[in-house]
């Protein structure tokens, strides 16, 4: 299905947040996830289903002022 990951359209096979992360090679890094502006805590990654058109943000710490 087609979703938006970090502002870009992507065709994905994964149906849940945790499998999306492994499909996109994100596993093991220090990051946070929002789906349609709702933050999905790590404890809910496996239980959170994705739907076509979802907007997913995958975020990490960065330099800031």
């Amino acid at each position: 299905m087609r979703v938006i990951v970090n502002g870009e359209q992507r065709d994905i096979a994964a149906s849940h947040v945790d499998t999306l992360l492994s499909e996109l090679d994100y596993e093991g890094t220090h990051f946070a996830i929002a789906v349609n502006y709702d933050v999905v805590p790590k404890s809910r990654w496996a239980a959170t289903a994705l739907n076509a058109g979802d907007e997913i943000e995958i975020i990490t710490p960065r330099q800031g002022g």
Binding site: V5, N6, G7, L24, D25, Y26, T29, H30, F31, A32, E57, I58, I59, T60, P61, R62, Q63, G64, G65
Partner: peptide
């Protein structure tokens, strides 16, 4: 210290590297 949050590219480790410095 202040830090920000930014999108991480697939497979990227930029955030991890920065975070360990902090």
């Amino acid at each position: 210290v202040t830090v920000s949050l930014r999108r991480e590219a697939a497979g990227g480790k930029t955030g991890d590297a920065f975070w360990s410095l902090i």
